[in-house]
Amino acid sequence: MSNANQQAVAKYKNNFLKEVEANVEEGHWVKMCMQCGVCAGSCPLGPHWEHSPQKIFMMIRAGKREEVLGSDSMWMCTSCYNCIVRCPRKLPITHIMHGLANYSHRLGLAPKGQPTREIAKLFWDNLVKTGRVNELKFSLAMYFKDGFGQGVKNAMAMQGIGLGLMKAGRLNPMEIFGGHVCKDKSGVQKMIAKAREIEDRRKSLA
C-alpha cells in the first residue's frame, strides 16, 4: 500500500464518497446520480469493461473503495462524451471517470498492465524527457513493452506501415538517436515538475 493510499484510508475511513468528493476531479457530482442507467446504455465500450459508470457511482456510495479504484472501467473510457450528452442529471461522467483513473493511479491502485494505462505512461514519459513526442521511440516502446520476442513480432507486423510512413517523409529513422527536442528542454521539465508539485499539494498527496 502506497503512502498516499494509507493516508487516504486513514483520513476517510469508511466514507469513500467523501474521499471521492474531496480528491477526484468533479467527484462532488457522484452523489447526484439517480441510477437511471442511461450512461451504461450509451457507452460504446459498455460490454468491454468491468463496471458501467452507473455501477461505479453506486459502488462509490456503497463504500467499495478497493473495487472502484482497482477497476479497469475508467481506463477504458475513450472520451466519446456520449454519457455526458445524455445524462439527464448533467453529470460530467467522462471527467469523473478520468478523475477516478488519475486518483487510482496516484494511489498506486490502478490495475497493473492495463493497456490504456501503459500507453498513457509511455506517452507521458516520452514527452517529459524532451518536451516533444518522439514518435519512433514511442512506437518502439509500445511494441517492446511485453518483452523482446513480442516486440519483434509487433514490429514485423507493422513494418509495411512503418515503411510507408518513412517513404512519405512522415517518419524519420534517425530519430532513434536522440531525436529533436524543444528549445528549452530543462525549462519545460521544470515547468512540469512545478505543476505536479502544485497539484499534489492541492490534492494533499505530497
Binding site: 452523489k31 439517480m34 441510477q35 453506486m58 456510495r61
Partner: peptide, 14 residues
C-alpha cells in the same frame, strides 16, 4: 426536491 436532497448528501440506494 430529490436533487436538492442529493446535494445535501442524502444517499439513494436502489
Amino acid at each position: 426536491f430529490y436533487r436538492s436532497a442529493q446535494k445535501k448528501g442524502v444517499i439513494f440506494t436502489k
